[in-house]
Amino acid sequence: MPALSGTTIGFIGLGLMGRPMALHLHRAGATVVVCNRSQTVVDALVAQGLQAAATPREVAARTDTVILMLPDTPSVETVLFGADGVLAGLRPGALVIDMGTTAVLATREFGRRVREAGGDYLDAPVSGGQVGAEEATLTIMVGGSDAAVVRARPLLAVLGSRLTHVGELGAGQVAKAANQVIVGLTIGAVAEGLALAQRAGVDPVRVREALVGGFAASRILELHGERMVSGRFAPGGRATVQHKDMSQALELAQALGLELPATALNRELYARLIALGEGGLDHSALYRLITGAAGTPAEGAGR
């Protein structure tokens, strides 16, 4: 019997990562009810056996668990509490799981409001990008009660290969903020190192090969470094999203009285990349800013 046979799951937000995640749940045996701002992707999923809902309210009214995979905090707030939002159709005892990257303080407030309405709430942001979503190998960082995590674990196990219950509500988003700081700064480090090699007249492809097996080795050098040296910047994780995530991390740090100077500089670099019209490219396109190529046409840039 499939792992999720007999379960009914709502899924709202069918972008680069949400679409394959919803499909994994469906293939694991769940009845999956989907809703998205763009109807085209909904129609494509319905053709594969998933069910459509017209509004977040309808999703909530038809399911016991609702997963959100949305681009930013305002989108989560609108989907939950706006006209025809999830809260308007929430079943008693239903579980809402936010798997996007949402501001920590807002997450705690959203959870409080959902609990007051008779539901439960988890923040379960992910790392692994589009590839991780497609291969169901996401790393999932969870905040919320023990009981809610136990309830969610079977479906989260379908979506990822590593799940960590970090702490109470909001703790998952704190972990994701830390993740995005490390990702953004490491992309910047790889971009600068490979740009240095290029400017010095040494093949960055070979420099990357030399570094992959050494102390500078990382998943980012492996994957994003390859994007940089091959000039392939079709988005897996967009530069605009990385900028948003760095901004959220800095807002959290400010609220805690903590200075993150390298993170602030990295956010500024992404802001410059976006201002040059390249925010829709993969976040590894920071390499184009460092090398001076940003804002100019380039074959293979993935525009």
Score class of each variant (00 low, 15 high):
1 M>V: 15
2 P>S: 13
3 A>P: 10
4 L>F: 15
9 I>C: 09
10 G>T: 11
13 G>T: 12
13 G>I: 03
13 G>K: 05
14 L>G: 06
19 R>P: 01
26 H>P: 10
27 R>Q: 13
28 A>F: 14
30 A>F: 09
31 T>P: 07
32 V>N: 14
37 R>K: 07
38 S>P: 02
39 Q>F: 07
43 D>H: 04
43 D>S: 12
45 L>E: 02
47 A>T: 08
48 Q>K: 08
51 Q>D: 14
52 A>F: 12
52 A>I: 04
53 A>H: 03
56 P>A: 10
56 P>E: 07
59 V>P: 06
63 T>V: 11
64 D>C: 07
65 T>S: 07
67 I>P: 00
67 I>F: 02
68 L>T: 02
69 M>E: 00
71 P>V: 05
72 D>T: 07
74 P>N: 01
75 S>E: 00
76 V>M: 12
76 V>W: 12
83 A>G: 13
85 G>F: 13
86 V>E: 02
92 P>T: 03
92 P>H: 01
96 V>S: 01
99 M>C: 09
101 T>G: 13
104 V>R: 06
108 R>D: 03
109 E>M: 14
110 F>I: 06
112 R>P: 06
112 R>D: 03
112 R>K: 07
113 R>S: 05
113 R>K: 00
117 A>W: 11
118 G>L: 13
119 G>D: 12
120 D>K: 10
121 Y>N: 01
124 A>D: 09
127 S>A: 15
127 S>N: 11
131 V>A: 08
132 G>Y: 13
132 G>T: 07
132 G>D: 15
134 E>G: 15
135 E>L: 14
136 A>V: 14
138 L>T: 05
140 I>M: 10
143 G>P: 02
143 G>F: 03
144 G>D: 07
148 A>R: 00
148 A>L: 05
150 V>I: 09
152 A>F: 08
152 A>I: 14
153 R>F: 15
159 L>E: 12
161 S>L: 12
161 S>V: 07
165 H>F: 12
165 H>P: 06
166 V>T: 01
172 G>Y: 05
178 A>C: 10
178 A>F: 02
180 Q>C: 09
181 V>R: 11
181 V>G: 15
185 L>T: 10
189 A>F: 10
191 A>D: 04
193 G>T: 12
195 A>M: 14
196 L>I: 15
197 A>I: 13
201 G>F: 03
203 D>E: 05
205 V>G: 12
206 R>K: 03
213 G>M: 01
217 A>R: 02
219 R>E: 11
220 I>R: 08
221 L>M: 09
222 E>L: 14
225 G>C: 05
229 V>L: 15
233 F>W: 01
237 G>E: 00
238 R>M: 00
238 R>S: 00
242 Q>V: 06
246 M>V: 11
252 L>E: 06
254 Q>C: 11
254 Q>I: 06
255 A>M: 14
255 A>R: 08
256 L>G: 06
256 L>S: 09
259 E>C: 15
265 L>C: 11
266 N>S: 12
268 E>N: 09
270 Y>H: 06
273 L>F: 06
274 I>D: 00
275 A>I: 09
277 G>Q: 11
280 G>V: 02
282 D>A: 01
285 A>M: 05
286 L>Q: 04
286 L>K: 01
289 L>A: 00
290 I>Q: 09
292 G>T: 04
292 G>S: 07
292 G>P: 10
296 T>L: 05
296 T>P: 08
296 T>S: 11
298 A>L: 10
298 A>R: 11
302 G>P: 13
303 R>A: 04
